[in-house]
Design a protein around this nucleic acid. Structure first.
Lengths: 114, 114
DNA sequence: TATTATATATAGATGATCGATATATCGTCA
DNA sequence: TGACGATATATCGATCATCTATATATAATA
């Protein structure tokens, strides 16, 4: 299944933060991990991710550090800040409200909450 | 609940088409109906809707006609074309794939489809 | 009579994502 | 050995969807 990219808009940040909730990750790893967990529905592009990571770091949502153990290649790991955890929780709630609303509209004529 | 508008991106067309699946409607009515059915989550702006309707008509997804019965004010009604119905079905499938994938990522660590 | 709701329309701004491109290293295969 | 694909990060400009602001016109309401 190939998803129209415009659907992704708005949920990308939440998904990235969710990945970091479980464990610290570096950019390239996020792309692969997101692809794996979504079963190839999400193929986040590097040109989308790296600028987004920089923005989130500036906004104090995530923070980066260089790989501590020696790796084959230089990697920048990211972790959630306390504010980032809070933001993730908010975005989950927002997602649930949004997807419920879509399903409500799709569900039928929807008169009076039925 | 106030939704980040960027979440809307990509699903607006599907929601409009869904409204028209049940009955023909004019633009202003769609805005109100969408608001009602989504319980105020979606507040589609006129500046978004009218250009979108024109585009969808050009693409033969919907077609318009003037109100047949006399109305207080001139109204342009829209109906789904055959192609529009097909497109709606496709977009529903796409939405399900997308929202399932998001929920899969949100659901947990997600190793091996668990 | 002024304001709000109804009804449609368009122009320009904003913001998220992508494609293209760049750099550098590593592993593999011919 | 040399080319290529995978790994890893980065930036620029393009694209596309939505919004804000603005415009027009009439009906209802205060």
């Amino acid at each position: 299944m190939k998803i129209d990219k415009s659907l992704m808009t708005g949920s990308t940040t939440m998904l990235i933060l969710k990945l970091l909730e479980n464990s610290d990750m570096y950019g390239y790893q996020m792309i692969e991990e997101l692809e794996r967990r979504s079963q190839n529905i999400f193929t986040l592009k590097a040109g989308t991710l790296y600028p987004l990571l920089h923005t989130l770091e500036q906004q104090n949502v995530i923070e980066s550090y260089d790989a501590e153990v020696e790796t084959v290649r230089p990697r920048k790991y990211y972790r959630l800040t306390k504010y980032g955890k809070k933001l993730l929780d908010e975005k989950k709630i927002e997602w649930n409200a949004y997807s419920s609303a879509v399903n409500r509209v799709l569900g039928g004529v929807g008169y009076d909450g039925i």
